[in-house]
Design a protein around this nucleic acid. Structure first.
Lengths: 345, 345
DNA sequence: ATGAAAGCGCTAACAA
DNA sequence: TTGTTAGCGCTTTCAT
């Protein structure tokens, strides 16, 4: 593979001159510039970034680590991060952990070995966080996305989950639904706890008292949405509405509804976090708390690059991104819902 | 950041010994091994891969380039490739082109500069392929996925599209549908042409003559499926069935069906390539020609690594992966479909 | 079994 | 304005 020496020889100049032409570090006479550029082109010269990075101690590479590339939530985050990084001259490299902590460990280790300038981390769900702490201790810039890493202080860009939970619940209440069941993710997830908190705040404000009996915990996956919804819907006294804490489980809920021939919003209202079910042209269109994923990715990458370049200093920051409420069919106001007892009897 | 010299000093040995311990290149006495390992651990030493790669002229990094991470077809390919690479000690790095050729160019250029050992390329749709040719000429190992790059001879792993088209059409014919419309991707895509060829073969075998009037060309995106289906379905004499050449367009078709209150398979049968619409629990479940995406990714990565390691030599190969036919509701045999005229009058 | 030292391709300080 | 050269952190040959 062609190197800088060959280019220099080809152009009849020194390697320093070639370097200066490429990086624009120092003035080079137009004549030599010309010759060097021609040589570069003729030889299809690609500067060895390994050597350069080794020398200048920065790679302009950013690693992005995500737990599950099949979850449609992440691709858009990746897009946001990539676009921003691209503009600022960084190259983003993505790797998947499959939500397995040992893979996350290996990937972070590899990225540290390759001396990536920074890491965008959407952490796997695990309490084992020593490897993240080690990276941070070694001054690797890390920005967490979606959830923070327990016990490690990093910049992070998170959804304002409390607000999201409150937004959704308030909307349902205002639409006339009072008995609102929750299909939550595992309680170990901070996001679940926060969303739950928002939900309770909304109930409280409306003077409705919350009961643990209406809160169901899934595992964030498709099937638990299905199972829990089936359970909820076959109970003798059904709730008025279900609020689902992620889009993947919402799909499962819709499946349950369909199988049981329960209509929405006729028989029960629905609202869900995420936009997963929305690309699809089927009824019912779901009312959703949407995460501005692209923005989250871009914000995180911007923060990270600011850290890398020293434009941002001081203690780690937490950015809360506001979710938006998109009201759709699944939570339309039902006249009956206000006096469901009559109808249900 | 800690380097090998510090580790050596800490352990009271030479850098050569540290290197030997890490790589297992040469025998080192247990005593020194012990000391070195302890030092590595204490200092949280991460060998500088930039320096190592510079020296040994290989990075064990593989680049993966895909045109659209939002297309659910790719994440599974990535998984297959990653898992295999992981097992063989390579690190995969993924980048998105957004199907824009100038981004593809930039990414390939970056990967060459970083001296990636090889590239898995799912090419953007463009006839501008000079950058790929240049990479190949420079002895960068490249394996193409999903589609080949026109005019550049590389290993490639492609779906057996002809077979897929034939499989789908034959199935529809056998189920009693004779007037089968096609919603194809752009004719510039080789995959479209191949699928079309398979379709025609099937018609031919069944003694049905094919007519260009039944073939419609979309742009592979959601909306064109919707538009074309609307057009097809509002025609005075409807076809019996529609075969759609990708899953994303199929979603659009389903939307059209729903809006027009046309039932499937009652009024029209459907079959589609890909599995896009299948994760969703809504009717009708689509009969599909499915790509074993995980397998495609794994196969491609295996091929690439074999090339990199010199285990595979000789001229570029083309691997055709067999699609499978999953028969579902949308193409169920309809008694009426055999004498639709009677019913339709 | 261990260590000394050259060199991978580049940048940047310094000399010319 | 241009060139010479040391050195980034590592591996590997060659001494010891």
């Amino acid at each position: 593979m062609t190197n800088i020496t060959e280019v220099a020889r080809h152009a009849g100049v020194s390697t320093a001159t070639v370097s200066n032409v490429i990086r624009g570090t120092q003035r080079v006479s137009p004549r030599l510039q010309e010759r060097v550029k021609k040589a570069i082109h003729q030889l299809d010269y690609h500067p060895n970034e390994l050597a350069r990075s080794l020398k200048v101690r920065q790679t302009r590479m950013i690693g992005m680590i995500i737990p599950d590339i099949m979850n449609p939530f992440f691709p858009e985050i990746m897009r946001g991060a990539e676009d921003l990084a691209y503009d600022r001259g960084y190259f983003i490299t993505t790797a998947n952990t499959d939500d397995r902590i040992e893979r996350e460990r290996r990937i972070i280790s590899a990225m540290r070995s390759y001396r990536f300038d920074g890491i965008l981390l959407a952490p796997a769900s695990s309490k084992d966080t020593a490897h993240v702490r080690a990276a941070v201790d070694a001054k690797t810039c890390v920005v967490c996305i979606d959830r923070a890493v327990k016990g490690v202080d990093t910049d992070s860009v998170l959804l304002d989950n409390v607000r999201g939970g409150r937004l959704a619940a308030t909307h349902l209440i205002k639409s006339g639904y009072r008995k609102i069941a929750i299909i939550s993710g595992p309680l170990e997830l901070q996001t679940s706890r926060e969303r739950l908190r928002g939900y309770k705040q909304a109930l409280h404000s409306a003077g409705i008292k919350s009961t643990p009996k209406l809160i169901f915990y899934g595992d964030s996956r498709h099937n638990s949405g299905y199972t829990l919804a089936t359970e909820i819907l076959s109970a003798s006294k059904r709730p008025d509405a279900i609020l689902i804490f992620n889009g993947v489980m919402a799909i499962g809920v819709l499946r349950a509804l369909q199988e049981m021939k329960i209509s929405c919003p006729g028989d029960i209202a629905l609202a869900a976090f995420d936009r997963v079910a929305l690309d699809h042209p089927f009824h019912p269109q779901l009312t959703a708390i949407e995460q501005p994923s692209y923005e989250i990715g871009a914000k995180a990458a911007g923060l990270l690059i600011d850290r890398i370049e020293g434009k941002l200093t001081g203690p780690p920051t937490t950015t809360r991104i506001r979710p938006t409420l998109s009201i759709r069919e699944s939570s339309e106001v039902q006249p009956q819902s206000l006096n469901r007892q009559t109808k249900d009897h």
